[in-house]
């Protein structure tokens, strides 16, 4: 099983590297420079895919947590945990790229822009998940506790998003008119980031399996 995951991880990493190279080339040489924001707009091609990947990984963790609670199989718990860890990396990318964009668009590193703010809340929510994991290492109850937290946290996501959208005024361009080359680039970079996220996830699950294997080898 671990071997199979390793093979998938290698395949995902290689294709992610290829696709990212292609996506970066497209971002810099194919996509046109946006008129009002200039070169900085190109952050967008990685910012948005990271956000999508983050949601995808958290959704995976939500589903795996439900599966873990109902079956008690620890494989599901590994997927759920890895999903959150990798998801947190993606959220961090969203926040950093968002802040960088903010610096060039509005001259400030941080503005309380609704979608960025909701990622900040998301980051804090799942930080508590990682905290439970870190403090409860080896405790047999930890997987169950974190599964419950992951479920509740994910249920909260749409509510957080709505609440934050109503609270502040929308700074995010609600719908960006994308020229076809921009659309193509975004599509390509989305696939590239998705594969990158998948390879991170697979490596994470693989290392968990391997750690378990060696521990079982010498009790």
């Amino acid at each position: 099983m671990a071997e199979k995951i390793r093979k998938c991880a290698v395949a995902a990493t290689l294709s992610a590297a290829l696709l990212n190279a292609a996506a970066l080339a497209a971002v810099f040489f194919y996509a046109p420079v946006e008129a009002s924001m200039g070169e900085a707009q190109k952050i967008f091609y990685y910012h948005v895919p990271c956000a999508i990947a983050a949601y995808g990984l958290l959704l995976l963790s939500f589903v795996m947590s439900i599966a873990f609670l109902s079956t008690g199989q620890k494989e599901y718990d590994e997927w759920a945990f890895s999903g959150v860890e990798t998801g947190m990396v993606m959220i961090a990318c969203v926040l950093v790229s968002g802040a960088t964009w903010g610096r060039s668009a509005w001259g400030k590193w941080w503005v309380w822009e609704p979608r960025l703010t909701s990622f900040l809340i998301l980051f804090m929510t799942y930080l508590s998940y990682l905290l439970i994991r870190a403090l409860g290492t080896g405790d047999p109850r930890t997987p169950k506790i974190s599964a419950v937290v992951s479920i509740v946290a994910f249920l909260n996501v749409p509510l957080v998003n709505r609440a934050i959208a109503w609270w502040g005024s929308a700074v995010h361009p609600a719908r960006i008119g994308l020229e076809p080359p921009m659309k193509h680039t975004l599509l390509l970079s989305s696939f590239a980031v998705a594969l990158m996220a998948a390879s991170l996830l697979l490596w994470r699950v693989f290392s968990a399996r391997k750690a378990e294997g060696t521990e079982e080898g010498n009790p």
């Binding site: 809340i121 508590s128 905290l131 405790d139 937290v149 509740v152 909260n156």
Partner: peptide, 27 residues
Amino acid sequence: ALLSKEKGSALLYPLVLYPLLVPLFMA
């Protein structure tokens, strides 16, 4: 109930609870 048996549950409790209450707090 979830955290009652954890070590350091008094510390963990608000850290887990507050982020989840953000939308409620705003409303």
